[in-house]
């Protein structure tokens, strides 16, 4: 029976009667038989790493785990188990103290455990804070190079380069559009306006799977990193997107990192709240307009050193930048879009 089950993928059509016979007799004669829909649910609750390993169990499991129906079900379960992706970054120094590369690592924080997910051993230079959607993470650099990675499957795909910008790109968005069933990257950039010869903020969108960026309506307000107040605008979906202003948030001074360039804190929407984080974490309620500080437990972080295969702990001072955001691990493939 078990042999047959393994070879047969579409088992949902199996008559209930056959199953009953097996259930009644398994305890004495046969290994346990689990109905396929139950097995499907069990697999849905497994971590991605286990699932990738279990693809080698048998052909039926391989087919199930690879199917888009399963990937969606698994993502749904994953979203019910809250986790945070932590991205510490630090300069790798030479003996003479010069910086040679900026290392970036991904860690997952879940149930008070911190798991190492992925490193970028070659280093990623001057990266902008990653953006997350359905287990996919958009990583981009100040030089406008972009890639999407899935830390749970370790798939990495480089994106086509966007329009040239006169300023370092800071305004980047990444999300899933349920209307077209596609993932989209949105990007603000600056061009010189021919009439006024001033910098004009433009907006373009890349649909994953396509090769070209598509320019859309300009944002109503320039997207700038050197500001002490945030303006939250929303854009409606549809043929003629409209921008609406939600609120203005004053950024507490201790959230602005004073480097050669000032960096504004990471801003994450969580229901009707905003999380603002750099070394400190603040919470802002958009309804009551209240800002409060959250105690942060992340004091220092480790980074994987590929040369001697060891984990090094970086003191807070050495970590140049640190991000965290809500994360749901998934098996969502990047290349198939």
């Amino acid at each position: 029976m078990a042999v047959k089950r393994c070879a047969d993928i579409a088992v949902s059509a199996r008559p209930r009667k056959v199953m009953r016979v097996v259930i009644n007799s398994w305890s004495r004669f046969l290994p346990p038989y689990i109905p396929d829909d139950v097995m499907f649910s069990i697999l849905s609750w497994l971590p991605s790493k286990s699932l990738i390993r279990f693809k080698s169990v048998c052909k039926a499991w391989h087919a199930t785990i690879s199917s888009s129906r399963f990937i969606n079900a698994h993502l749904k379960c994953s979203k019910q188990r809250p986790s945070i992706l932590m991205v510490p970054g630090a300069f790798e120094k030479q003996k003479n103290g010069n910086n040679i590369a900026f290392l970036m690592s991904l860690y997952k924080y879940q149930d008070t455990n911190i798991m190492h997910l992925q490193d970028f051993p070659q280093g990623i230079c001057k990266w902008i804070r990653p953006v997350h959607c359905n287990g996919l993470v958009l990583i981009s650099t100040r030089k406008h190079e972009m890639m999407i990675c899935n830390p749970s499957t370790r798939e990495i795909v480089s994106l086509p380069k966007g329009s040239r910008s006169l300023c370092d790109g800071m305004g980047i968005g990444f999300g899933f559009d349920p209307h077209s069933n596609k993932y989209k990257v949105a990007r603000a950039f600056y061009q010189r306006d021919d009439d006024t010869s001033r910098h004009a903020c433009k907006f373009e969108v890349l649909t994953l799977g396509s090769t070209a960026w598509r320019q859309t309506e300009d944002p109503p307000y320039p997207i700038d990193s050197r500001t002490l107040a945030l303006e939250i605008w929303t854009c409606s979906v549809g043929q003629n997107p409209e921008w609406t202003r939600c609120c203005t948030v004053q950024i507490p001074p201790d959230l602005v990192i004073k480097h050669s360039i000032e960096r504004h804190p990471l801003v994450v929407f969580h229901e009707r709240r905003l999380l603002l984080a750099s070394y400190k974490v603040y919470r802002y309620d958009t309804r009551t307009c209240k800002m409060e500080k959250i105690a942060s437990t992340f004091q220092d972080f480790t980074c994987y050193d590929s040369r001697n295969s060891q984990y090094r702990t970086f003191l807070k001072k050495e970590v140049m930048d640190f991000h965290l955001f809500n994360y749901a691990e998934s098996l969502v493939p990047i290349r198939e879009f």
Binding site: V3, R5, P31
Partner: peptide, 14 residues
Amino acid sequence: PEQNRETFGIVNDF
């Protein structure tokens, strides 16, 4: 994977 095959009585058909 092998432990799972044992647990669920699955034959490796690869």
